[in-house]
Write a protein that binds this DNA or RNA. Structure first.
Lengths: 180, 180
DNA sequence: TATTGTTATACTCTATAACTATA
DNA sequence: TATAGTTATAGAGTATAACAATA
């Protein structure tokens, strides 16, 4: 395996970071990756993957929720969401009930256990986030989240405004259409 | 397919963004994904994928470079890097020469064509980045990049400081070790 | 013995197509 | 006809293990 000494690697990381200090893609990709790694690791004791954790959060925000809507909120296909919900249901965190008004769709909701696990996960997340943000002052964090929020709001809405129907697509779906 | 109307989706996006306005993971993941999508699309005319583009940039920063080092800089395994470099070499953008001092390893460098394509790609990137950053003032962007740079520098170095040897690992490798 | 690049293979995550049941 | 959820399958992206050449 490609073993590189500590010192060599640290100084190289530093050089890399300086060379990419103005590259938005590098900055967002690396920081996001590093935080997701930390968070995913911190959630291991709860047995929650990031998609599972995200699903619990989304369901708690808007109960009841159908599986398809949950998938599109999280950004994965409804066929992929099946296994995620299967898993959460088997472990007693999510309840599937058939909707009375439309018996094809589920009303997903959190069980007592699901709420408990989620609240633990939220505490862990808060903790990880605080640890991660140590290098920033509170006013810097305020600016950071405001800026990122505005970037997301701006660029998330754009596609729907210019495309026609069938406009709720995941990144992959858009990519495939382009290639087709 | 899960089709959701424009209006419903836009207001739901707004609600989602507000609910996750303090969630670092959400903010970094979404903003990063949106920018990567834009950039990847803008680079299609040059026939460059993001890993190919990143490899060209890394090689240009530090010529000559071995394949293994290139992989660890970009964050993918050297076995995965083989195909990326194969592709760039076949298209005449990257040159592979055996190192005189260590004939196992390659000295990777950009060809004239590689430099030309990279300079076009850099111009495209600058343009995409400017478009993406329109919602921010220039002082906000200055703060944003400073903050993200410090977060990366802080959390990228930490693992090497506490782990022993074999410390240059990708996220996946660290994850697998944890699970083992 | 260890390392660079390579190949064959397998794993993870995700989507597409075809299905069932409902609408 | 169309949609919600399901299943089977395929694809993209990635890694691990074993190899040859070289150190």
């Amino acid at each position: 395996m490609g073993k590189i000494s500590n010192m060599e690697n640290q100084s190289d990381d530093g050089k890399l970071n300086r060379a990419f200090a103005d590259s938005l893609g590098y900055l967002l990709t690396q920081s996001g990756r590093l935080f997701r790694e930390n968070l995913a690791e911190a959630l291991v004791p709860l047995g929650l993957s990031l998609p599972e954790y995200g699903s619990l959060r989304l369901i708690s925000l808007n109960t009841p929720m159908s599986q398809g809507v949950l998938g599109s909120r999280y950004g994965i296909d409804r066929t992929t969401m099946v296994a995620v919900v299967d898993n959460l249901e088997e472990r007693g965190m999510v309840r599937r009930e058939r909707s009375a008004s439309d018996r094809r769709s589920y009303r997903l909701s959190l069980t007592a256990k699901g709420k408990k696990v989620l609240s633990r996960a939220l505490r862990i997340t808060t903790n990880e986030q605080q640890k991660f943000l140590v290098p920033l002052s509170s006013s810097e964090w305020a600016i950071l989240k405001d800026c990122l929020g505005r970037l997301i709001e701006t660029h998330m809405k754009a596609p729907e405004l210019i495309e026609g129907k069938d406009n709720v697509k995941t990144a992959r779906q858009r990519k495939r259409n382009k290639n087709a």
